[in-house]
Write a protein that binds this DNA or RNA. Structure first.
Lengths: 334, 334
DNA sequence: TACATTCATCGAAGCGGTTCGACGAAGCGG
DNA sequence: CCGCTTCGTCGAACCGCTTCGATGAATGTA
């Protein structure tokens, strides 16, 4: 493999001159620049990333920590991963993708060995064990998901509480007096998936304020439990006029269940949910919903991270950015 | 950050001794070993990955090239990504995850800058432009997906032709005389997604050999086109007794369409498909199917890649490994 | 007891870049 | 025409680690 030394020799200049020609950090005469470029093309030279990283202590890559809970509904995950990857690349960064079971150890490993210039954490829980390690790292970190302690990290998430209020307001405006909420599965709550209770608690509070009755249930993550649960919930609450679903697996399974029960939406039952645009499109979901934006969240996280990488200390205090929900009316409520 | 130099000073030995203590490549006295370990713990020392990579010309990471076609049905993709990532980590490798639109340029970039020790290509097409660059690279490469030219790379894929035969045999054995096959969308074929025609052509040939009638159609990748297409195909072939579906998006949408039409499976129509175990589970698909194994493929590719990394030249000739399909009978055929 | 091994360790070179300070040549103002 | 900048380039040091060859001490052998 050609090194910068080879280029220098062929072009008849010193190594440093080639380096400056490459980086543009010092001026180079037209003639020299041309000879160097020709030599580079001749030799097919490419900068060795490791050597550059060693010299500059910048790897130009960021770590992307993703956890796979086996009970998790996979389709959504990919959208986050993809948006982070795309945004990183646009900013000149590569992505080191890490799925270690022990996320905390992984954070430690990639940061302390200097493999990355920054880290994005996906699917952050309330008391995520990765946060401490990330705060202790030299590199800046950003998260997608709102943890309990937001100290020292840039946080990005959908505003779940506001989403819940938006949905309840919508239903209240339509005159609903009794609604059912299906939350994420119980183990998501146990694991510390704060979005579950942030949404639920806000919904309950707001509904209470309006004097509406609201019944909350946990959803399931796997068939056939999903269908069974939906049916038993609907059986148990025959007088409820609206169903709020905060769970991808459940909403994806809902059309079939409702058709089997002969329930018409919105005539017999209003349905409102919360899912990403892509998700709704894949499953062709016809429901009015708050649309989350994995693509936006991933991108925001990366952009902020890169800002911090580029001027540590001057990128301002840690940010908690909850993006405002929007309700997309698809006519599934009445 | 502590360097090996610091450790050496604290332990009162030379840098090389620390290095040998770390790698175990030369013997070290018990006492020295202990002092070094203590120093490492004291200082919280971690080897700098870039420096090590420079010195050893091994990065201990592999590139994972993934393309996102917007028309693609995302859920399946993640399983490949995950299996590659998990397998790599188990073998001590990190994963550089690359989603550049220009996959060929990305291969060039990460290989020639020596960012990775090997590359796994996902979703390889018949004449994939990335293959040439990968063959030209110093690093070994493995693919998931069978390209037209298998020269010089290790190839892993499901045996789609055999899968088709298995399914046709199964239907023939049950006495079916007229079947409908829904293939992947047309643009998958245009893009060079060889699995589409490998499956279709084998199905047609085998069915022909049995004197069965087989009608082939392209599926769609997005709703509402998926549902519309399924309906129009079923309308056009009222006498067909079996439906073979080789398309994730279509099979996921099928239950709802069939229920809406009042079609009972398998009484009115037999259904056989091809999808991964996980996929079937997520969507709770009740269909008899050949189960593909993204997890196995990803793992095989990584294991072979690592084998080549570890002894280039001695890992034998390029491998084309088509894994044998298995039909899982879920009673959706009669 | 002398000599050949083995063991434990060290110093130096090298991996492939970047960057700082120096320096001669050219350009400039007065 | 002189002294001062600016321009273009070079050499050397450095980034943090690995590895080769050398060396003195300890051990084994005859």
């Amino acid at each position: 493999m050609a090194t910068i030394e080879d280029v220098a020799r062929v072009a008849g200049v010193s190594r440093s001159t080639v380096s400056y020609a490459l980086s543009g950090k010092r001026s180079i005469s037209r003639a020299t620049q041309d000879r160097i470029e020709a030599a580079i093309a001749d030799l097919g030279f490419t900068v060795n990333a490791g050597a550059r990283a060693l010299a500059t202590s910048q790897t130009m890559s960021i770590g992307l920590l993703s956890q796979f809970h086996q009970d998790e509904f996979a389709p959504a995950m990919l959208q986050y991963i993809r948006s982070v990857s795309d945004a990183a690349r646009e900013l000149g960064y590569d992505v080191l993708f890490v799925t270690d079971t022990d996320g905390a150890a992984a954070v430690k490993r990639i940061t302390s060995s200097n493999m990355v210039d920054g880290v994005v954490l996906l699917d952050v829980t309330h008391a995520d064990p990765r946060l401490g390690l990330l705060r202790a790292a030299r590199q800046p970190g950003a998260t997608v998901g709102l943890p309990g302690d937001v100290e020292g990290l840039d946080i990005f998430d959908l505003d779940f509480a506001e989403s819940a209020r938006l949905i309840i307001d919508h239903l209240y405006g339509l005159g609903h007096k009794e609604v059912v909420l299906i939350s994420p599965p119980e183990h998501v709550f146990e694991r510390g998936g704060a979005y579950g209770w942030r949404f639920r608690d806000a919904a309950v509070e707001r509904a209470g304020g309006y004097g509406m009755r609201i019944h909350t249930y946990y959803g399931e993550s796997q068939q056939p439990a999903i269908g069974v649960t939906i049916n038993s919930i609907l059986d148990a609450r025959p007088t409820a006029t609206a169903l709020v679903v905060h769970n991808d697996a459940t909403i994806a399974a809902l059309p079939l269940v409702l058709m089997a029960r002969g329930v018409k939406v919105p005539e017999d039952l209003s349905v409102v949910s919360l899912y990403s645009t892509d998700f709704g499109r894949i499953f062709s979901l016809p429901y009015t919903a708050v649309e989350s934006s994995p693509d936006v969240l991933g991108r925001l996280a990366v952009e902020q991270l890169v800002r911090r990488i580029n001027d540590p200390g001057h990128a301002g205090p840690a940010v908690v950015h909850l993006i405002a929900p929007e309700l997309r009316d698809r006519g599934s409520t009445a």
